[in-house]
Design a protein around this nucleic acid. Structure first.
Lengths: 155, 155
DNA sequence: GCAATATAGTACTAAAATAGTCCTATATAG
DNA sequence: CTATATAGGACTATTTTAGTACTATATTGC
């Protein structure tokens, strides 16, 4: 359930590498080699990340990419949004917009709330934590604590 | 970001209808008409829900479907699992399992934790709430309260 | 200025996942 | 024994996603 796309996955890995070398500027080729990913694909992902303002770039010889801001200020939600756009959990455009049945639309609204909750939790995770650098996921721990105690079927 | 499949969406709508009529037994055709969905598709979804034990069915004339247990005991996580299987947010089978780079695998592990947190929050939501019937989403409110106070970029 | 290197943008193709349909079998009520 | 209904599976079409290629532009260093 709830997959993220490979591109988003790649993006996280690449951003993590950039986060690990905040002072340096890495080329797409270098990042591809480090991550064992195809150069064209890596290039594509980096271009997208640049468009969405997560990385800054320098053109020309001795150019490359670096994080646009500190890893602590980049969230998982931003990475998801950058690669997959702000698509919601559910697109309430069922069929021919005949959502005119009240209980049906109730369902849609409930999913939206779930979606919101997930978005918020994704905004709590920073690249620093995703990259496994320093930053203990304090807020994240708080989230898990808050959640604990509910029904616990299936683990 | 993070879409659920149309099938899961349909499933929720159908389950909500069943939840609204706990005493009755509805046929796939009836449910299809009520929900403005194609009969074959509805049938397919219901079969899947039956396989996963979320609805019970009666064969033959005057047969049909009903919830296998009270709506309050069916969670969003169970619905997701029933339709999409327990697929994780990230399948850490990148390339040829060359996840041997420590920071890369750190990323994978972090995503798993995110995944877990999302799963837990989905286990807090019951069909009762999804269907908009009675049951105020108390635990859900608790979750949102716990999350509030974090960074709040982009709403 | 010119050559080499690197990103930017866009378009296209291939592959995979998803959605939807159809067919056959089985069970039950009347 | 016929109507109606679910059960299971296979198949096709559609959509989404992934990956590649090509062209343009910017910068460095000679």
């Amino acid at each position: 359930m709830l997959r993220i796309s490979k591109m988003t996955d790649y993006a996280t890995v690449l951003l993590a590498r950039l986060a690990a070398a905040p002072d340096r500027q890495l080329t797409a080729t270098q990042l591809a080699a480090q991550s064992h990913l195809g150069a064209p694909t890596v290039s594509k992902v980096l271009k997208q990340l640049h468009r969405r303002g997560l990385v800054s770039s320098t053109l020309g010889l001795r150019g490359g990419y670096r994080l646009a801001r500190p890893a602590a200020e980049i969230t998982a939600a931003q990475i998801l949004d950058a690669l997959e756009g702000p698509v919601a959990l559910i697109e309430c455009a069922r069929q021919t917009h005949q959502c005119s049945i009240e209980s049906t639309c109730g369902v849609g609204r409930a999913w939206q709330r779930v979606n919101l909750a997930i978005r918020r939790s994704l905004q709590e995770i920073t690249l620093l934590e995703l990259a496994g650098l320093g930053g203990e996921p304090v807020r994240f721990a708080a989230l898990e604590r808050a959640l604990r105690g509910g029904r616990a079927e299936r683990t």
